[in-house]
Amino acid sequence: MDPLFDAVPGKAYYAISFRDIPPAYILGGRCLVCGHVGPVDRHRIERRWGGGEQLRFVGQRHLRCMACGNRVRNHFTVVGCYLATAFPAAPPAG
Rank of each mutant, 00 (worst) to 15 (best):
R44D: 03
R61C: 00
Y13E: 03
D41K: 12
R64A: 15
G28H: 12
F76Q: 02
R19F: 15
L63C: 03
L27M: 12
I45Y: 03
R19D: 06
Y25H: 04
S17Q: 07
M66F: 14
L27A: 05
Q60V: 07
A12S: 15
I45V: 14
V79P: 00
D2W: 15
V78L: 02
G10W: 12
R30C: 10
Q54I: 05
G94K: 14
G38C: 11
H62S: 12
R56D: 04
C81N: 05
G52D: 14
V40K: 08
P91R: 14
G80H: 05
T85S: 11
L32T: 13
D20G: 04
P9E: 03
L83S: 12
G59C: 02
F57T: 10
F57G: 03
L32C: 10
F76P: 00
H43P: 00
H75K: 14
S17E: 09
F57H: 14
V79N: 02
R64G: 11
G38I: 03
G29H: 13
S17P: 00
V33G: 03
R44T: 12
Y14P: 04
D20Y: 09
P3A: 12
R64P: 04
P88M: 10
G38H: 15
T85I: 06
A86R: 13
A86Q: 15
